[in-house]
Amino acid sequence: MARHHEGMRKERLDRGIKVRSDGVYAVGSWREMAFLLAPRLVLILGLLALPLALAQAPYWQKVLSIICIYALLAIGFDFLAHFVGLVSLGGALYIGVGAYLAALLNTELGLPVWATIPLATVLGGGVCTLLLWPCLPLRGVYFAIVSLMFPLLASRIIEALDVFGGTDGVIGVAGFPGVWVEQYLLVVCLLLILFGLRRLVNEDVGLVFRGVKDNDQAVKASGINITTFKALGVFIAASLGCLGGAILAHIYNWAGISQFALDFSIIPIAATVVGGGGTLVGPVIGCLILVPISELLRDFGTLRIAVYALILMAFIVFKSEGLMSFGARKYNQSESWVEI
């Protein structure tokens, strides 16, 4: 088929329902409702069903938890990069701060899990925002580099000063009451945050964020403090990471300097590239693909990274827009070949 198209061109038309649902018109029929809701339901029900489906495979349950934690980071990265205009490599910082805070709150102050996680999320977000505050005027790669320095610094400082348990880390952190609590806490948080953020970026405040990214002079001339909004963006992204870090500490009953590992800074970017930046859902899908691949590749030993890199390169070369953007286009548009 695809080879005989001389004198023809591919025509793409928005499906009628897409055009109408973008406007103010009401959606009229079950079919149309289903068309709009199906992708969301697949994602929601799929994620909610995964822990059950993996009930017989404890190893893959762990992987699912890790996927969710990376997904929180990746959503934060995508939000900061595509809606606030800050390319942050601070993922490792967020995870580390969240993990240490939760661990210390639990072991030193004896707070239970249901208190340490929200506290570590909010306090950690605040700490990370304060650390990154002086860098907020930096743009592009400069912000990226500085945000990458912080996790490196943090682990070296903890090691050198031998604080917070030094190289041993904080041990004896309380675990979750059960694996179901751990899994559903993560999955539900992930879904709420995903849909919440998607809502936020489409509200008026989302337009302000996008203005800060695309047209900061005009935003200043509109009487809005761009530093405040950048800080707010960083706070949101950092809180997501700290939430992940806090949960991680309770999963492993431990917080240590390996939680400042660069994987937490890099994989979210890869996931965003694979899944499609600017969509917020894309990065989650990216994590659902990349993290299991990286687990499966453990069999390759040292070749793991090489194979991983090849897969990533293939994605970037063949589907640079990302899976989510590609999928959304296919879903919302009908394509046909027409005579020129």
């Binding site: 008026d204 405040v205 337009l207 302000v208 203005g211 935003v219 509109s222 009487g223 809005i224």
Partner: peptide, 13 residues
């Protein structure tokens, strides 16, 4: 018209 959302979001507006 969406261009005006940002100034309308300011404290003064």
């Amino acid at each position: 018209f969406k261009n005006l959302i940002v100034p309308l979001f300011s404290n003064r507006a």
